[in-house]
């Protein structure tokens, strides 16, 4: 589904992501694990086209996305939920969801309302005034209305209460089953990653240093990668 090869990103002269390569199959949840500053967010921003990549290829169902502006990547089936959620704060909840629709006549599918009841319940509230967990649901809904084949989620658990993190994990697995969606999620919280992921990658200083399936995942080894 998503195929990343020799993917390199740099800020000016300093290279941050070095020739990263991975694949994520249809209906698979892939977790990218790593501590702060290891290049997770940079990788994700560059995959969606907010940051330019210096080299390598990103293929979605065989089509190369490298060099395309963000909105064209979204049209080809990639969706992105950034770290820190980034709702449009002064727009209402409903308006935030509507921004993901391409055409004037499109409407929000009923499925979205049943997955995220808060969108109907809080439709007219300003998105900026929602709590972190509510905003997280909102931005996932906003990404889903673009009908993606692959969803990129950057640190969805950051700044969210532990009790809600459990709900979020259930939600992601449900969305994956419902839509056959491929999800690539970057994460530092090991328990969350083990709840949702089919496979885990470990990124360190911009290199992928380890990968494993969930069945083989060893919390002790992973814990070592994540501890400071």
């Amino acid at each position: 589904m998503l195929e990343v090869r020799d993917f390199t990103v740099s800020y000016g002269e300093s290279e941050v992501v070095h020739q990263v390569g991975f694949e994520a199959g249809e209906g698979e949840i892939l977790a990218v694990m790593g501590r702060n500053g290891m290049g997770k967010s940079t990788l994700f921003k560059s995959l969606i086209g907010i940051l330019p990549s210096r080299g390598g290829s990103v293929k979605l169902c065989g089509q190369d996305l490298a060099g395309l502006p963000s909105h064209e990547r979204v049209r080809k089936g990639l969706a992105y939920v950034p770290q820190g959620r980034m709702v449009f704060p002064a727009l209402t909840v409903m308006e935030n969801v509507l921004t993901g629709l391409r055409n004037r006549k499109d409407s929000v599918p009923e499925e979205i309302f049943s997955l995220f009841p808060i969108i109907r319940d809080m439709a007219n509230r300003k998105a900026g005034n929602l709590s972190g967990g509510q905003q997280q649901q909102l931005v996932i809904a906003r990404a889903l209305v673009t009908n993606p084949k692959v969803l990129l989620l950057d640190e969805p658990t950051e700044g969210i209460q532990p009790s809600i993190i459990k709900d979020l994990a259930r939600l992601l697995v449900e969305i994956k089953k419902l839509r056959g969606l491929t999800i690539v999620v970057s994460e530092q919280v090991l328990s969350f990653a083990l709840d949702v992921a089919d496979r885990l990658l470990v990124i360190e200083r911009g290199h992928i240093v380890d990968q494993m399936t969930r069945a083989n995942a060893d919390s002790a080894t992973l814990g070592r990668y994540l501890s400071v």
Binding site: A90, E95, T99, G100
Partner: peptide, 17 residues
């Protein structure tokens, strides 16, 4: 709506299509 979204966060507006 697209205009208002773009004003508030240009990069993110691109990333929602």
């Amino acid at each position: 709506l697209k205009v208002r979204a773009t004003v508030q966060n240009r990069a993110m507006a691109g990333a929602v299509g």
